[in-house]
């Protein structure tokens, strides 16, 4: 969690310092209480935490969906803390891929078209076919979300997220709505993308088993990072079980 860069390690892509977030309201909620964090290119990071631990808030701030109340987030040399909507939109458009628990595919578009929605506005995208092949859906190109299973829909969401060749891929409970068998297929897709495209991948989950496939595991509790460890070896998703 220090800013120093050990020799031989990939560069730091995203770093947070003293990150805090308070949700205003009748009874203000402190979601983050000073988080320091460095994320490196090509890393696979799992953020573990119970519900209400602040992990989603952290992910949203890292992804430019929300802004912090205090502290600083720097992406390469851009300060996201002070960025306005326009700059954050550009940041998301050019660098970030999102995967959500509930897929959020556009129902009226086919798998291919859902990916196209991104490739059409990206600077150096994969083709929709390449992206869908990467998640093993090359045979489902022209199917609508309604014609796909939950796991397939989530894989389309992953294909959509990686098609722009993002620098970081942020996944919020990507297997939360899926059974274990399907969930593992989705994790395989994420693992594959991370290895092949060397995309910094951050997965948040409350499922501790998933931690075994990560390079690094961070534990969040009550808005703070309370633990960190590195796996000596990453386990293949198919060896996971829950």
């Amino acid at each position: 969690m220090s800013g120093t860069q050990p020799a031989g390690q990939p560069p730091v892509l995203l770093s947070a310092r003293g990150l805090a977030k308070v949700y205003d309201g009748e009874s203000p909620v402190q979601a983050l209480r000073g988080v320091d964090l460095d994320l490196r290119a090509a890393e696979f990071v799992v953020l573990l935490g119970a519900s209400g631990s602040g992990k989603s808030t952290l992910l949203n701030i890292l992804g430019g969906l929300e802004t912090a109340s205090s502290g600083q987030v720097v992406y390469q040399d851009h300060d996201l803390t002070r960025a306005g909507d326009r700059a954050l939109t550009r940041y998301r458009r050019e660098h970030v891929g999102f995967v959500f628990q509930f897929y959020n595919l556009i129902a009226s578009l086919t798998a291919r078209e859902n990916v196209e929605a991104v490739t059409e506005i990206a600077r150096n995208p994969l083709t929709p076919e390449e992206a869908l092949t990467a998640v093993g859906l090359e045979h489902r190109l022209d199917h609508f979300p309604a014609q796909l299973s939950g796991g397939e829909q989530q894989r389309v969401a992953i294909a959509r997220a990686i098609a722009k060749q993002p620098d970081l891929l942020l996944c919020d409970e990507p297997t939360g709505a899926l059974d274990s068998h399907t969930g593992i297929r989705v994790l395989e897709a994420l693992d594959e993308v991370n290895r092949r495209l060397r995309t910094l991948t951050v997965v948040i989950t409350h499922n501790a088993v998933i931690a075994d496939m990560a390079d690094r595991v961070l534990r969040l509790s009550d808005g703070r990072i309370v633990g960190e460890h590195r796996n000596a070896t990453r386990r293949a998703p198919r060896d996971l079980q829950w």
């Binding site: 458009r93 970030v96 959020n104 129902a107 959509r160």
Partner: peptide, 14 residues
């Protein structure tokens, strides 16, 4: 609304 929000997350401008 949800679709539009998805597009915004994907990087579509307002």
């Amino acid at each position: 609304e949800r679709e539009l929000a998805s597009l915004r997350v994907l990087g579509y401008t307002r």
